[in-house]
Nucleic acid binder design. Structure first.
Lengths: 142, 142
DNA sequence: GTTCGTGCAAACGGTTTGCAACAAT
DNA sequence: ATTGTTGCAAACCGTTTGCACGAAC
């Protein structure tokens, strides 16, 4: 997503742009780092030092509500922190979590094949993803 | 797991049994309900009214550390609560989360087939699971 | 002037921790 | 005696909320 599109992206999702929302969006919609709310706050504060934590939390929640962003709750990072992170990638994809660093990598939908989900007895599966954990080799694409 | 085996299970995992630990284990190792810490506390308190929340939390963390129990952090329940739950099922399996109730159901490993995980470029996958969300039909097995 | 967004600080809820009492070995 | 376990209460940390100010339409 290009910088000039951020404003349009907000409007398309029924979100009234504001300086704060644009700065948050400009970071969170363009990253592939799956940041936590705190990381978004830090990043955004460097560009808009007077922004408050509450605004960042409210903005992120708003983006999730409006479908601009997805929230991932995948477990704990290496140092035992529970983690809620944000993912601007709205396409179906899987996730790989690096044991060593806790980093979350997107895995393209076609890279893994899941079968029989639609034949699961008793369950009507609306969506699914594979969550993998292990070691990322050096130079792995994110 | 049978009641009389709970004591043995603790010892086998290097956990010194105590009245509190036995009561916690007797519930959490035998349930298929994926309880939260709070739910464990409530259940256990009815059998051991003087037990403290801290002991339950400490005990659950100890069990996870010692590999008796797994902690799942899979997202939010229907009412928006973030949830950390405990799962005594140590065998590889998948999870289905009911959109309507937030209930987590174990899905047997063989019920879903995942391929190409071992061929993922750049990643050395140690373990994985499929996380599904949707509607559980009436009478679905847990 | 009404609505909407922001900043601040206080509140909140789940979890952890420090510590003194206690039990087990 | 030493070591490990418990209960209590306070601390903690990420997140949410109430409220008054200010900006935008």
């Amino acid at each position: 997503m290009m910088a000039r599109d951020v404003d349009a992206a907000l409007r398309e999702h029924g979100i009234q742009p504001s300086a704060q929302r644009l700065v948050v969006a400009d970071f969170v919609l363009r990253t592939d780092e799956h940041p936590t709310a705190e990381q978004v706050f830090d990043r955004v504060k460097s560009r808009l030092p007077m922004i408050s934590r509450a605004t960042v939390y409210n903005t992120l929640n708003l983006f999730v509500e409006k479908g601009l962003l997805r929230e991932l709750v995948l477990g704990r990072s290496k140092d035992g922190e529970r983690r809620v992170v944000f993912d601007p990638n709205l396409d179906a994809h899987h996730h790989f979590i690096d044991d060593a660093t806790g980093a979350i990598h997107d895995v393209p939908w076609e890279a893994v094949k899941v079968s029989k989900v639609d034949r699961l007895e008793g369950y009507d599966v609306r969506e699914y993803q594979v969550v993998m954990r292990g070691r990322a080799k050096r130079g792995a694409r994110r």
